[in-house]
Nucleic acid binder design. Structure first.
Length: 412
RNA sequence: GCCCCCAUCGUCUAGUGGCCUAGGACGCCGCCCUUUCAAGGCGGUAACGGGGAUUCGAACUCCCCUGGGGGCACCA
């Protein structure tokens, strides 16, 4: 039995969404759990929307989360020749054809169809053009896109690992573009070809791609006698109202939470529990524990609402589980950003600071809170000092938050 | 409009025919701790969407309805 090979394939068009992060996490956990490979492929075929900054950001976030991938990241755009060859192969075999319809024409016909109560989708105008007609179209100055020829009847079928058989009538899937007029491959084609080339065995992704699987699989099957990879479609992460998670609900990118003082261990832990459960009562888990308990067949079916309150509670748990030097190092960027303070991450280097942070650790839920509670130690105008012994004495009689506030008040 | 997926406390979930008068966690409420508290301790509130069917017996199986989500691009 071939070893597991999975990939995370983000499209670099913006900040990495928590939903994407969870997809990356599930792939990572499955690979590590099975001893397989976790690969990274940047799906940048949409040149207009992809940016280098987004690629760098995605890499940075994965590193921060601790989701180390195997090998070098693959840039989908670098495989463009392979995609073109595949498209040619499909055309030669009759699985695909040249389409000379323009974007405007397609939009107009789709609008017409929708208005007439008919489903949108390609109407097959160029499906059976003869060479003379194609030549005539080219003479008009038109360039061809390439469309995949889908069956007119019968049904497309594949078996999702957690959902079971998914069957859809071919009649509801119209011929779709696999190569743009400019010669750029479209997602369906690039995805199918790259998964073949990378020998991906399990495709773990969001449920929003469930329907596209029929298309990708059709291309893959038309390209050759390749075994289908196993497909796992994870439920989507939804907003508090049960609707799509959007900016309207607050933070949606991993970067947002990172900046708000959340630990990577928290995000990893929380995201893992959204759409998956270890099957027992465990809530607070380390990434290693998650790796040990994770199995793809335990992924849930229903969408999961993102609960910021539970995330905050969990962050407090992880903060408390942190060793002091690690916590100080984690707080440092926040203290510096807010108060320009540079902290020596060695506890002994500044016993007062270490004591203060240790106290704040007992009840804080974010790193930002800790930085704020200890701000009197960071700000330059705090022209007083508290001996470590004083802190220790106070710990026994006073509660942390209040103590710090009292000191801050005294400072004013 | 058409296609697909889904459905247990407010939220994340456990539960795969009897162990369920449905368990855990977050939140919420109360009490305790406490010169404040985002922490901690104890207790409490709260759910199987509706209707059929199968069965001696359904949260768990099947069907319908309702509800929610996703998709139908020369985006991914």
């Amino acid at each position: 039995m071939a070893s597991v090979r999975v990939r995370f394939s983000p499209s670099p068009t913006g900040l990495l969404h928590v939903g994407s992060a969870r997809t990356a996490l599930f792939n990572f956990l499955y690979a590590r759990h099975t001893g397989g490979a976790f690969l990274l492929r940047i799906e940048d075929t949409d040149v207009a929307r992809s940016t280098q900054a987004a690629i760098d950001q995605a890499l940075d976030v994965l590193t921060w989360l601790g989701l180390a991938f195997d090998g070098e990241p693959v840039l989908q755009s670098s495989n463009i020749e392979r995609h073109r060859d595949a498209a040619s192969q499909l055309v030669a075999a009759g699985h695909a054809y040249e389409c000379y319809c323009t974007k405007d024409e397609l939009d107009a016909r789709n609008a017409e169809a929708t208005a007439g109560g008919r489903p949108p989708g390609y109407d097959g105008k160029c499906r059976d053009l003869d060479e003379a007609t194609r030549a005539a179209r080219r003479d008009e100055g038109r360039s061809a896109a390439i469309r995949f020829r889908t069956p007119l009847d019968g049904e497309s079928r594949f078996v999702d690992v957690v959902r079971g058989p998914v069957v859809v009538p071919w009649a509801t899937i119209s011929d779709f573009v696999i190569m743009r007029a400019g010669g750029a491959p479209v997602f369906y084609l690039a995805n199918a070809v790259d998964d073949i080339d990378m020998a991906i065995t399990h495709v773990i992704r969001g449920e929003d791609l469930l329907d596209s699987t029929h298309r990708v699989l059709a291309i893959r099957r038309a390209l050759g006698p390749y075994d289908d990879p196993a497909y796992v479609h994870c439920p989507l992460i939804i907003g508090p109202g049960g609707h799509k998670l959007s900016k309207r609900h607050g933070a949606v990118s991993v970067e947002d939470y990172r900046g708000a003082g959340y630990l990577p261990a928290t995000l990893v832990n929380y995201l893992a529990l959204l759409g998956w459960s270890p099957g027992d009562d465990r809530q607070v888990m380390t990434i290693d524990e998650l790796v040990g308990a994770f199995d793809i067949v335990d992924v849930n079916h229903a969408g999961a609402a993102f609960d910021a309150q539970k995330l905050e509670w969990m962050n407090g748990e992880h903060i408390r589980a942190l060793r002091l030097d690690a916590l100080i190092a984690a707080v440092e960027p926040f203290a510096r950003a807010r108060y320009g303070a540079a902290i020596d991450a060695t506890p002994n280097a500044d016993a007062t600071l270490a004591t203060a942070i240790a106290l704040a650790q007992q009840r804080a839920t974010t790193l930002v809170q800790i930085a704020e509670q200890c701000r009197f130690l960071f700000t330059s105008d705090a022209d007083f000092e508290i001996a470590p012994e004083s802190w220790e004495r106070l710990v026994g009689t006073a509660q942390v938050g209040g103590l710090l506030d009292a000191v801050i008040d005294h400072c004013k």
